[in-house]
Simulated scan of single mutants.
Amino acid sequence: MDLSERIARLRKSWRPGHVLLVIPLALIVVITVVDILAPEDIRLGPLLVIAPAITASFAGPLSTAVIGILAVAGQAYIGLHFGLLTSRGVLVQIAAIAVLSALVVFYCLMRERHGQELARVRSVAEAAQQILLWPLPDRIGPLRVASLYLAAEDEALIGGDLYAATRTGGGTHVMIGDVRGKGLAAVGEAALLLGAFREAAHQHTSLPALAAALERSVGRYQADFEPEGEAGERFVTALLLEIPDHDPIIRMTSCGHPAPLLLSPGHSVSVPSLHPAPPLGVGGTGQTGYTVDVFTFEEGDTLLLYTDGIIEARSREGVFYPFAERAARWTDSSPETLLRHLRRDLLAHAGGYLGDDAAVIAIHRAPAGNSGIHHGKAARPDSSPHGPGGTGPSREC
């Protein structure tokens, strides 16, 4: 092994915390020297315990133990220098530094074990997130897509908010939803709804039929697993979308979920006017109880789907996050850039902490030449088929 390889391995094994070890080592040397040079009535040896104490803040138990041993050795050297090594006072000081150093090392061991457990928990959460919330692809047909999920619970990566997208025939079906409650307690119901959507979207061609199928799935889940004390209090808000590949429209069915934002080039933001049905799990309405609202969705437009954790985020002064106003700043950005700006701006507004899970999906209809699929001539919006209860495309605010 040549010198360059040895230096490369040394750099790889060297950690930033190793450089900081100079600080406790310097403290041991300085305190020992000053104690020896100071007048007899001034004793600084007990301060040597500071060295292992500060080492624990950036190093592991082994490095902390070494620094503790050196601190004990420093106190012993001071006693030896003055010929008092076997005196009761010096022995007590040495024992005190040794005991305190051992306690600090024990703290480091517990902290390291807790860190390993936390790392395992986070790895499980990451695996669960990959299973439940499959990452949305960057492109789905003519659409460019980006998604963002922010869990409210500490150390959690998933919670009660959910989203999914799937290709069905000549279009794309998308769902975004919010299970009542937050954190890991809502994960089971979110998992059920995601699985039901991915299956039912290929079996039901209309949004009302899809919504009715999801209502049945949620109802069966609640009948089997809903706690007795929460009967009738568990529900899911959901927004279902159908986006045809070749028609510049979008169909939506809302089950108690907030309407999305429609962003157009030039900082234009509008809010489609929906006719929401009750949330899933409140009580089935049948297919005729769900309305399909149809709106134009042209090339260059971006649709922002979100959960209420976004609009209910508060600042320290109690001000709600002005979602539409802030989103208008980045209407000309790509979906990835748009969500990156929104994430940074949202966390800054909320002081880095959200009181509820939050999810956002940005769906951009790319120009025909950039869609990655072949486009024919788009049909007139008013000639496209609508589901039961549908209306003509509009651009309502």
Score class of each variant (00 low, 15 high):
residue 5 E to M: 14
residue 7 I to N: 04
residue 9 R to N: 11
residue 13 S to R: 13
residue 17 G to Y: 14
residue 32 T to D: 01
residue 34 V to N: 08
residue 35 D to R: 06
residue 36 I to K: 07
residue 38 A to D: 13
residue 39 P to T: 07
residue 43 R to I: 13
residue 50 I to H: 01
residue 53 A to H: 00
residue 56 A to L: 14
residue 58 F to G: 06
residue 59 A to W: 05
residue 63 S to R: 05
residue 71 A to P: 05
residue 72 V to N: 01
residue 74 G to R: 05
residue 106 F to S: 07
residue 110 M to I: 14
residue 110 M to L: 15
residue 116 Q to P: 00
residue 118 L to S: 08
residue 137 P to L: 10
residue 139 R to M: 12
residue 139 R to N: 14
residue 140 I to F: 07
residue 144 R to Y: 02
residue 165 A to T: 11
residue 168 T to H: 12
residue 169 G to H: 03
residue 170 G to N: 12
residue 180 R to F: 07
residue 183 G to R: 09
residue 191 A to W: 03
residue 197 F to E: 02
residue 204 H to D: 10
residue 217 S to R: 11
residue 219 G to D: 15
residue 226 E to L: 05
residue 235 F to Q: 00
residue 239 L to R: 09
residue 239 L to Y: 08
residue 240 L to G: 04
residue 240 L to H: 05
residue 253 T to W: 09
residue 258 P to V: 00
residue 262 L to H: 05
residue 263 L to G: 03
residue 264 S to G: 06
residue 290 Y to F: 14
residue 294 V to Y: 00
residue 298 E to Y: 02
residue 302 T to Y: 06
residue 307 T to G: 03
residue 313 A to P: 06
residue 319 V to D: 15
residue 331 T to A: 13
residue 333 S to K: 11
residue 338 L to S: 03
residue 363 I to N: 04
residue 371 S to D: 11
residue 374 H to E: 11
residue 378 A to E: 10
residue 379 A to P: 07
residue 383 S to Q: 10
residue 385 P to A: 11
residue 387 G to K: 00
residue 393 P to R: 08
